[in-house]
């Protein structure tokens, strides 16, 4: 959603259009939860933060003024809410390092969600992996298992895990390489030349 689409949608929400609220919710719920999760590290809590945000957005829609973009406003609100929450909960040491890291990181992970369609493309690419490779990759990246643990779980050798992971990385890199900024530049250049 670009700046103007966001502005238009939010104007409709302000005027009490429930359908526009639903559109916004369905589009941003997952990204905002994922973003909140970076701070709170608890699925339920992340959902609570995101849900609270949407409830408040609706209840206070008439008084909310957004001077930046809707995108920025949403991610910033979630971030502030999370940081307050953590401060309030007198955060435990186990998370504090991660939080500092997340709060200060210059490459904000919310950027990920601002690349239109990236999540869908990742999903499509992962689903193109052969079954076994997909499972090896999922166990590593989703469940965070070590190679050894994956090998044990699937009764295969660590060498096989290594090979599968390598192949998966190569495949996904190829599939998703259009997000490489250098290639995008290349495409723009190519297309503008072709247009001549």
């Amino acid at each position: 959603m670009n700046h103007w689409e966001g502005k238009e949608l939010f104007e409709k929400i302000k005027s009490g259009d429930e359908h526009s609220f639903e559109i916004l919710f369905l589009k941003y719920y997952k990204p905002l939860c994922t973003y909140a999760f970076q701070f709170v590290n608890e699925i339920e809590e992340a959902e609570e933060v995101a849900q609270d945000f949407f409830v408040k957005l609706w209840e206070k829609r008439s008084v909310i003024e957004i001077d930046s973009s809707l995108n920025n406003y949403m991610f910033r609100s979630i971030k502030n809410h999370c940081l307050n929450l953590l401060l309030h909960n007198n955060i435990k040491n186990r998370y504090s390092e991660k939080i500092k890291e997340t709060a200060n990181s210059s490459v904000d992970s919310s950027q990920f969600f601002l690349e239109p369609g990236l999540a869908e493309k990742i999903e499509r690419a992962i689903n193109l992996l052969p079954k076994k490779r997909k499972e090896v990759f999922r166990l590593s990246r989703e469940e965070g298992l070590k190679y050894k643990e994956i090998a044990d779980r699937l009764s295969i050798s660590v060498k096989t895990v290594e090979a599968q992971m390598g192949l998966a990385l190569k495949f996904l890199r190829d599939q998703l390489s259009e997000f490489d900024p250098r290639l995008i530049l290349f495409q723009i250049f190519y297309q503008s030349n072709r247009g001549k």
Partner: peptide, 22 residues
């Protein structure tokens, strides 16, 4: 890429349809 895929996996755990009802 790997970081983004990690975020994708994370986001896939959230169910927006049920949450909207709530």
């Amino acid at each position: 890429l790997i970081e983004n895929i990690g975020l994708y996996y994370e986001s896939a755990r959230f169910d927006e349809t049920n949450a909207l009802k709530f």
